[in-house]
Design a protein around this nucleic acid. Structure first.
Lengths: 225, 225
DNA sequence: TGGTTGCTTGATTGACCGCTCAACCAAGGC
DNA sequence: GCCTTGGTTGAGCGGTCAATCAAGCAACCA
């Protein structure tokens, strides 16, 4: 029926640590901070976790496991269009920025930059969190089908969306102004609009005559139409 | 002739602190770390700086003042084309990533995310560093003239370039793979290519009625690699 | 009833933290 | 010669850090 008291204590530690690591960072959060806020004693914490590092690992696992139910699914509620979903997720971040008085920082991004010599397990979990995020975006891109150019690298674009979020959050937080986030999202919107335009033109060209073979739009010189 | 010993000591502290903050972060760097590496005693440090926070401020000022001579100008040496300069700067970051065995982190970005409640002076200096960076990019964009759409928001795009760098660095570092940085740069290249394509189409449309007035097409102004 | 197990208690440890300060030193002015 | 000024020395302060551990506790079991 009720969860075992063990689990209860363990999750209380993890949840408290999630909050504190997000608020003050990993290094600036002391075990004493976690204990006082969670109303526990050091012995209890060290009964479940060998050390502070292991609390961090549990926190990163919790983020990874919570990314869909806690972040992505709520952001996508009522939004079906795959490309709209991408911007709905970004809008969720915007809301968090505003709610935090423009001091929001992505917990994963902050940890990724704060921890300078993370042990392999920690680094893998940070990467896994990013992968989960870009994976969700990647699925949207696939679902978008021929609205995007057929030779588009979905992984690349998904990572670019993550970059936009992280960069926007970082700048908005540093300047304490959402405008920085908004402008980054606007740039990404332009990017998508141009890609969709391109795909559309290609579809038209392919429909008109199959001889119209477009050179892949890459770096440097473009074939003049 | 020789610089006064006072300046000498001060800059030795600042330079050592720059290295250490970059290597281990601000919170994980102790005053003792700075002292032992710079071969100084605590009294000397506290003669010049009231506290650790003030060392950080001096470090951020040094970054801000050094961004042109130490980072941007070297990256632009031998590159004249304004858009090529943007990607030359990104290439400089790529080199630093590779040189550091894929563990490079932008010192400003890392500090911006590590310091969760920075005092106003610190926050302003972080912002000033970003402004100097985007300012340099912004000037490139203006110089690019009508190669980019006339209604383009230069500030927005400059911030987007910064975002690409920071996001690319963050992901490359987290995954310990330059590929993440490269793919982000590739996305940005696509973005610029599409913008240039757009501007070109617009110029053609506007110039249809007139005969001679073409865009200044200097020889060798092909965009650089 | 007494033993075992799983969890909790909180004082305590030693290392390290940022920072202080009285004493010291060398060079310049008078 | 002696004082002032600007810089240096390094032992040491009070505090905080992550982590320890002997003792206690309640629930279940034999």
């Amino acid at each position: 029926m009720s969860p075992s008291p063990a689990t209860d204590t363990r999750t209380r530690i993890v949840r408290t640590a999630m909050d504190l690591f997000w608020e003050k960072g990993f290094n600036s959060t002391s075990i004493a901070d976690i204990l006082s806020r969670s109303q526990l004693n050091s012995g209890s914490l060290y009964h479940f976790f060998p050390g502070k590092q292991d609390v961090l690992i549990a926190v990163l696992e919790a983020y990874r496991d919570g990314i869909y139910p806690m972040l992505i699914e709520p952001a996508w509620r009522g939004v079906r269009d795959p490309i709209a979903r991408i911007f709905a997720l970004l809008a969720a971040y915007r809301a968090m920025i505003v709610e935090s008085d423009n001091s929001y920082g992505c917990p994963i991004g902050s940890l990724a930059l704060e921890l300078h010599e993370p042990d392999p397990k920690v680094r893998e979990l940070l990467a896994a969190n990013f992968d989960a995020w870009t994976g969700a975006i990647g699925r949207c891109l696939e679902e978008a089908g021929d609205r995007l150019p057929p030779d588009l690298d979905h992984r690349e674009l998904a990572e670019f969306v993550l970059t936009t979020m992280e960069g926007g959050v970082m700048q908005a937080r540093t300047h304490r102004e959402v405008g920085y986030f908004d402008r980054n999202v606007r740039s990404l919107r332009t990017h998508f609009a141009m890609l969709e335009q391109l795909a559309k033109a290609e579809r038209v060209a392919a429909g008109v005559g199959r001889s119209a073979r477009r050179a892949p739009l890459k770096t440097g010189q473009k074939r003049g139409r």
